[in-house]
Write a protein that binds this DNA or RNA. Sequence first.
DNA 1: TCTTGATTCCAACGGTTGATGGAATACGAA
DNA 2: TTCGTATTCCATCAACCGTTGGAATCAAGA
Lengths: 216, 216
Amino acid sequence: MMVTPLEKARKDPDSMKAKILAKARRIFGQYGFHGATTRMIAEEVGIDISTLYYHWGEKGDLYEAVVLDINEDLRLKLKEVGDIIHGMPADKALALSLDIMTDYLFERPEISNLILFRYFGKTRDESVLDFRVPELVTEIARSMGMAKDKRNIPNPVRLRVLALMNFIHNFVSGEEYFKSMLKVDRDEYIASVKETVKFVLLPAFTGARPAGEEKR
Amino acid sequence: MMVTPLEKARKDPDSMKAKILAKARRIFGQYGFHGATTRMIAEEVGIDISTLYYHWGEKGDLYEAVVLDINEDLRLKLKEVGDIIHGMPADKALALSLDIMTDYLFERPEISNLILFRYFGKTRDESVLDFRVPELVTEIARSMGMAKDKRNIPNPVRLRVLALMNFIHNFVSGEEYFKSMLKVDRDEYIASVKETVKFVLLPAFTGARPAGEEKR
DNA sequence: TCTTGATTCCAACGGTTGATGGAATACGAA
DNA sequence: TTCGTATTCCATCAACCGTTGGAATCAAGA
């Protein structure tokens, strides 16, 4: 059984492979594929650039590993959330899921950054570093009970799930920009985001009215 | 009175300055600041790279011109929409605004791309190429009647307006990715996006229930 | 026609990037 | 110790980047 470098890194978080991967997540997340350089990453880890190449091969391969790594994190978290909300009424379940995921992503903004980069940016060479978004979308739709046939999620539902995920990603990735625009600190900002997320999403997805604002 | 290169280009759309600017919008939008190269832009226009430098100076200056150019387009369009919906009831006004802006942005996806790049990406050198988002947000909040005091928009309202704009930008910028995920063509995709936009946003912002889905 | 200025291209520059070969170093097995 | 393997660093490469000087070309007025 083949063990990939990524599996090794995830198994032993103290290994050099894992250290490089962790820094690479942050740098790629901040600057995107082209904006990040292998030298920046190596310097961040405190190693020579050739050590980085020794462990991860070329830049594109490291980037791919980062993408897969983040995918796996997200998958695990979604599963965890799915277990927590299991059996709850739909409106409570959604509100709680949104809060948990918002907190989680604010702790790991590279996840949101990288996913949005993947959606919106083109890479100069047309590599196909696939985020497993389709599977994640299916997973969410399933655990939120948004589709009757759990196997075949209809397109409108898919789009709504995407909208829901992106909604949070936007606020996480745009933190610096939006924070300075609103002139609030991080804690205030996160609280406001949670409020806004629920204000916009709950009515559409559960029929609940937001708490006493926007009189009809 | 000083006339900036940007003003010249906007005044005479057949000029070389304007041609370069138009291509630069698309390339910067697709690849971001670092992903785009001056050579790519020059090649797209069909000119030598030094001609580009003759007209626009260094890369950062061209990028700044692109940002300002797009800002102006967006401002004009928002004003136009503001006039159209003037006097309409809130729910009709919002629905119509969303449809118009969605169509508009799908015709000029570089706008959405560049705005999102600005939010989410860092540039290696910390230039402050400001999108006038705060002013645009104020403008929208005002014309949608989302704040009582038109001068001082409260933060929660600002965040909701941002959410509203980003909602559309996401689907416009992610077109390629999402289209292939849903396996639909462009027309179908745009129609679905419009539907989703209204499905999610109308309930929260106007209290309307989406048309006959999601029972209760 | 000659002149002048604006425009365009060719050729090249220094710096940075991704990437590699090979010499050191570390370290456990024998 | 000696060997062998895994790891790290130094030095360097070719390609590409942003940028510029200067020569050629064009357009229009004198």
